[in-house]
Amino acid sequence: MSAQPYVKRPGSFTNKVLNPTVSWLSRRGISLAGSSVLAVKGRKSGEWRRTPVNPLTHEGEVYLVAARGHVQWTHNMRAAGGGEMFRGKRGRPFTATEVPDAEKPEILRAYLRKWKWEVGAFFEGVGPDSSDEELRSVAERHPVFRLTYTG
């Protein structure tokens, strides 16, 4: 990974309006195009942190792709090794395994096929029709976790 990991911080509209709205809807069982709420324990505080995410089911596996890069939930996920996924009031516990960059192109392609309308700006011109080489060129900027549900 480069010295300064890629992070595209959300603006105030995302933090104050969009994320709270998506979280509120998800807690009531209403998903926007498959969105859910990720709960993961903070690596320093040990307190549960929640954020809306776009889980991807691809070839029978479930993945979380960090479109905005190495953000807080990715650091917490590495430390905790898992969390809970919410759609409605009940969470599903899972363990998480980080996917190596070499394995990311097909996952990123599938993610962009489904979510480019929302997250395409964070991938700097790379899209679902990009070559494996082009997708590999941005892979280190976008952590990917494979989820295994445990309950």
Rank of each mutant, 00 (worst) to 15 (best):
residue 39 A to I: 00
residue 9 R to W: 11
residue 151 G to V: 12
residue 90 R to W: 00
residue 86 F to P: 02
residue 87 R to V: 13
residue 105 P to G: 06
residue 134 E to N: 01
residue 124 E to D: 04
residue 131 S to P: 05
residue 116 K to S: 06
residue 22 V to A: 04
residue 120 G to C: 09
residue 120 G to M: 05
residue 64 L to F: 06
residue 151 G to C: 04
residue 113 R to Y: 00
residue 147 L to Q: 03
residue 131 S to M: 00
residue 55 P to A: 10
residue 132 D to S: 12
residue 55 P to H: 09
residue 40 V to S: 06
residue 116 K to D: 02
residue 50 R to Y: 09
residue 56 L to W: 01
residue 99 V to S: 04
residue 45 S to T: 14
residue 84 E to D: 13
residue 28 R to L: 08
residue 66 A to R: 00
residue 15 N to Q: 15
residue 139 A to C: 12
residue 56 L to N: 05
residue 53 V to L: 12
residue 28 R to G: 07
residue 8 K to C: 05
residue 139 A to G: 08
residue 14 T to Q: 10
residue 101 D to H: 15
residue 3 A to Y: 10
residue 60 G to F: 03
residue 40 V to C: 15
residue 88 G to I: 04
residue 106 E to H: 06
residue 96 A to N: 11
residue 21 T to Y: 11
residue 12 S to T: 09
residue 140 E to H: 14
residue 143 P to C: 05
residue 122 F to E: 07
residue 2 S to W: 12
residue 53 V to I: 10
residue 69 G to M: 03
residue 83 G to M: 14
residue 137 S to F: 01
residue 46 G to Y: 10
residue 49 R to K: 05
residue 69 G to D: 03
residue 2 S to K: 15
residue 64 L to S: 07
residue 81 G to I: 06
residue 34 G to M: 09
residue 103 E to Q: 10
residue 4 Q to E: 14
residue 50 R to F: 09
residue 68 R to W: 01
residue 117 W to A: 08
residue 69 G to T: 03
residue 59 E to I: 14
residue 84 E to I: 08
residue 83 G to S: 13
residue 93 P to R: 06
residue 137 S to V: 03
residue 10 P to E: 07
residue 91 G to F: 01
residue 82 G to M: 14
residue 90 R to A: 12
residue 140 E to F: 13
residue 14 T to C: 07
residue 69 G to W: 03
residue 85 M to E: 13
residue 54 N to G: 09
residue 138 V to C: 04
residue 38 L to K: 00
residue 106 E to K: 05
residue 124 E to R: 12
residue 73 W to P: 08
residue 98 E to C: 01
residue 125 G to N: 14
residue 116 K to G: 01
residue 88 G to V: 06
residue 3 A to I: 15
residue 135 L to A: 02
residue 115 W to R: 07
residue 108 L to Y: 02
residue 143 P to A: 07
residue 119 V to L: 01
residue 123 F to T: 04
residue 134 E to M: 00
residue 132 D to Y: 00
residue 89 K to T: 08
residue 47 E to A: 08
residue 74 T to R: 09
residue 15 N to W: 10
residue 145 F to P: 14
residue 29 G to V: 12
residue 37 V to E: 07
residue 102 A to T: 01
residue 87 R to E: 11
residue 58 H to F: 11
residue 28 R to Q: 12
residue 106 E to I: 04
residue 93 P to T: 10
residue 20 P to L: 15
residue 104 K to G: 07
residue 109 R to F: 13
residue 140 E to V: 09
residue 21 T to C: 15
residue 23 S to K: 13
residue 89 K to I: 09
residue 106 E to Y: 03
residue 100 P to A: 14
residue 47 E to N: 05
residue 40 V to P: 01
residue 117 W to G: 02
residue 60 G to S: 09
residue 42 G to F: 02
residue 57 T to C: 12
residue 93 P to M: 08
residue 124 E to F: 11
residue 149 Y to K: 00
residue 101 D to P: 14
residue 135 L to M: 10
residue 65 V to N: 02
residue 20 P to Q: 13
